[in-house]
C-alpha cells in the first residue's frame, strides 16, 4: 500500500529532523545522558510505529471482529516491547528516563505537525498540451 509507505517515510524524516534539533539542545544545555535518552525513545517510537503499520495492514484483511482481536493482541505484544525498553533504560545509569519519555512522544508530535500544517510533499503536476 504505497500511501502507507509514503507516510511512514515522511514521518521517519520528520522524527529524524526533530531528533537532531532536540539532541543538539540537550547536548548544549544538559548532559549526554539526556541526549541518549531522546535517541533511545525516538528509535523505539519509530520501531513501534513500523510494527503498528505491519499489524494494521494485516488486520484489515480479516473480518471485522477478528481484526479487532488481532489488533488487541498485537497491542499487548508491543506493550511488552515498551516494557522491556523502559526497563533497560531505567537500569542503565547512562540514560535519563524523562528524556526517554520525550523521545517516545516525538513520533506523535511529528504526526500532528505534519497533518495540521499540511506538510505533505506535493505531487508533481504534469503539464498537458492542449490539442485543439
Amino acid at each position: 500500500m504505497k500511501e502507507v509507505k509514503e507516510t511512514k517515510i515522511l514521518v521517519l524524516k520528520g522524527v529524524a529532523l526533530l531528533n537532531i534539533v532536540l539532541i543538539l539542545l540537550m547536548l548544549i544545555f544538559f548532559d549526554l545522558r539526556s541526549a541518549y535518552g531522546i535517541f533511545i525513545g525516538s528509535l523505539i517510537g519509530v520501531i513501534n510505529f513500523h510494527l503498528l503499520s505491519l499489524s494494521l495492514q494485516k488486520a484489515v484483511k480479516l473480518e471485522p471482529t477478528k481484526a479487532g482481536f488481532y489488533a488487541f493482541i498485537q497491542y499487548i505484544i508491543r506493550y511488552i516491547l515498551w516494557f522491556l525498553v523502559f526497563y533497560i533504560a531505567l537500569k542503565r545509569p547512562d540514560v535519563n528516563i524523562l528524556t526517554t519519555i520525550v523521545g517516545m512522544l516525538s513520533v506523535k508530535v511529528v504526526i500532528l505537525v505534519i497533518n495540521v500544517f499540511n506538510l505533505y510533499p506535493l505531487k508533481r503536476k504534469f503539464s498537458r498540451k492542449e490539442v485543439s
Binding site: N115, V116, N118, Y120
Partner: peptide, 8 residues
Amino acid sequence: GNVTLVML
C-alpha cells in the same frame, strides 16, 4: 486529507 486533519 480533511478527514485525517479533523481526526488528528
